[in-house]
Design a protein around this nucleic acid. Structure first.
Lengths: 214, 214
DNA sequence: TTGGCAGTGATTGTATCCAATGACAAGCGG
DNA sequence: CCGCTTGTCATTGGATACAATCACTGCCAA
């Protein structure tokens, strides 16, 4: 899943960071030479990095034409959410017994921080940590990588949505998070999986109600 | 998901074919120069092709060391099956209404061919066509690509399993396929999803009973 | 005015060459 | 005899140079 070459690795990591942080928006053109210059390298490692990011779905390559930051349309975003609805409950359910009390306390703290978060970026970061942590104890690294890819590819659109609806529109999310943590405390796999699926599904429907983001 | 460069594309396609067909077994060393020579190209397109295949999970790259055909251990294979259990029913359920009568007839014919198939390769090919066809009407190309990736990465181990148990051990599969097609005829999403999940799950358990394959 | 066409520039794709890393083996010392 | 060191070789990683492709622009003609 990852590059080998030292330079190519650095380029890929940096470009990934730029895309996930929002510094580079979907549709933005990526010129090989410009990246090479920024890293003081030739275009070879840059091209390898672009291949890696294309495979991750973060970059779109067109032969003899160029590279762009990948853009998702509404349908693709909804498709990603439907996949999340099936896979994240799996990861949660498989790992729920292995979750430690400390980890659940950490999850609860994250929920509280999210409730207090004023910056969109803060909320996004905490939400991501929260959800990936719930999936982290399944002992299924390929599944985790798949889920992380879903989060990466939709990062920009979650940011856009969160910015659009503001803090007021998010109380439902916090309630769902609270209920999920409560189910985790009881180690109730059925409830936890169902709540997580409902949470993602409702988020998908909310996103579908704002097609102007795309 | 795919390479751009013309040569790199050909190299990737050819190498993928070699891996899926079993011509190159998991763990086999891949030398860049040898591939380059075979295609009459330099190592540059070969390296790009290796990146693409690494992203697909068919090749493993190690920095400053080399490339090998990717190898899955039993745990990773079971993990893949668990993901299939969640995602393939999704694709089936989303597309079941769009399946035409002709397509269902085609599925039934595939089941009949599988029942008669004497060669392992024939069975493998038909089984793959059958399952990917059931997923093809969801209108979810990213999901389809994900599922196809699962099939690609486990192809070698399905071949090994089928060769091991022979034709006699496969009557359960045929019955499950028949029941699935019957549910499709009724356009019964609930039954069809459940049957497909059960089918994949039972296959996973059967695979887990033969760890000597790995 | 508009459509097409050719030329030009920028950008990507590929080949060749060189550097660097790692594996392996021979030799040295304990 | 065993273990460590060192040197050599095979292979990969990266840089430079060149070829091919594409998009854009300006011109010409209908």
């Amino acid at each position: 899943m990852q590059a080998d070459s030292l330079v190519g690795r650095r380029v890929a990591a940096s470009l990934r960071e730029a895309i996930l942080s929002g510094a580079m928006e979907p549709g933005a053109r990526i010129r090989q030479e410009e990246l090479a210059e920024r890293f003081g390298s030739s275009r070879i490692p840059v091209r390898e990095a672009l291949r890696v990011l294309e495979a991750e779905g973060l970059v779109r390559l067109v032969a003899n034409s160029g590279a762009w930051v990948a853009k998702l349309d509404l349908a693709e975003c909804l498709e990603t959410y439907k996949m999340r609805e099936r896979l994240e409950p799996l990861a949660l359910g498989e790992g729920i017994q292995a979750l430690t009390g400390e980890e659940i306390a950490r999850l609860e703290a994250l929920v509280a921080e999210m409730e207090e978060a004023e910056e969109v970026e803060t909320f996004l970061r905490l939400d991501r940590v929260f959800h990936l942590l719930t999936c982290s104890r399944a002992g299924m690294p390929m599944l985790e990588a798949t889920i992380r890819g879903f989060w990466d590819r939709t990062q920009h659109y979650r940011r856009a949505y969160a910015s659009l609806v503001g803090r007021e529109g998010q109380w439902v999310i916090h309630h769902e998070h609270r209920l999920l943590v409560e189910a985790l405390r009881r180690r109730d796999r059925i409830d936890a999986e169902a709540l997580l699926a409902l949470h993602i599904r409702r988020t998908r429907l909310a996103l579908a109600a704002h097609p102007e983001i795309f």
